[in-house]
Amino acid sequence: MGETAARPLRADAERSVRLILEAAERLLSRDPGASMEQIAAEAGVSRTTIHRRFAHRQALTDALALSAARQLAQAVDDGRPATAPPLVALHRITANVLEVKGAWTYALSLPATPDSEAATLHATMAERCITVLDRARAAGLIDASADLHWLQRVYYALLGETLHGNPADDEADPDALAARVVETFLHGAGVRG
């Protein structure tokens, strides 16, 4: 992938890469067929700058996917999946993930190239999800006989619906949304008693 993977960048180069990636996210979310030149214009950089940083469009989308995956992995890690009390970890991770996924919808929709750093990060995040669910089960928050891999899929579906579900839902606070997701995940729609 161009210079971004080859060696550390100077501060001004890092800033231009960040601007390009943020502009690519905004523009490609609206127009997935946008050209490199349109992305450069959106970022406020020259065509030569974008081509110097990313040799071709695939290099740009790979960098976009990797940047988003890194941010998402950091969001999961910040929730302390292995050390925080399970309910706290589940809530914190959910809020963090909703915030990152909301900001990087296009980038996180890109399939990770097999054996890439992004694919490794996604696999690690899946493992951390199972860790939190296993700890929640051990704490009695989840039934002892529950299939954790099935619950992981349900949790992911709740996250997806929260981000892309009802456009009329005006609740945007990640903590409030996380509380709703965790409550639904742990208790469903059954009668409280």
Rank of each mutant, 00 (worst) to 15 (best):
M1N: 09
A6R: 09
L9M: 13
R10M: 07
A11I: 11
A11R: 14
A11N: 09
S16L: 03
E22W: 06
E25C: 08
R26Q: 11
L28C: 00
L28R: 06
L28P: 04
P32T: 05
M36C: 04
Q38M: 07
A43V: 03
S46L: 11
R47D: 06
R47F: 00
T48L: 00
R52T: 12
R53L: 10
R53M: 14
A55Q: 09
H56P: 00
A59N: 08
A59M: 10
T61L: 13
D62V: 00
L66P: 01
S67R: 07
A69G: 03
Q71L: 12
A73I: 01
A75G: 03
A82D: 13
T83G: 08
P85K: 09
P85M: 13
V88T: 14
H91C: 03
H91V: 05
R92C: 10
I93R: 00
T94C: 06
L98R: 01
L98D: 00
V100I: 15
A103P: 00
A103W: 00
W104E: 01
W104N: 08
Y106F: 15
A107I: 04
L108P: 01
S109T: 08
T113A: 15
E117T: 11
T120V: 08
T124G: 07
M125R: 08
R128Q: 15
I130C: 07
I130Q: 05
I130V: 14
L133F: 05
A144Q: 15
A144W: 06
S145W: 11
Q152K: 10
Q152V: 01
R153I: 05
R153V: 12
V154Y: 14
L159N: 14
L163C: 11
L163R: 04
P167V: 07
D170H: 11
D175Y: 01
D175L: 10
L177H: 00
V181S: 11
E183Q: 07
E183N: 13
F185A: 06
H187T: 12
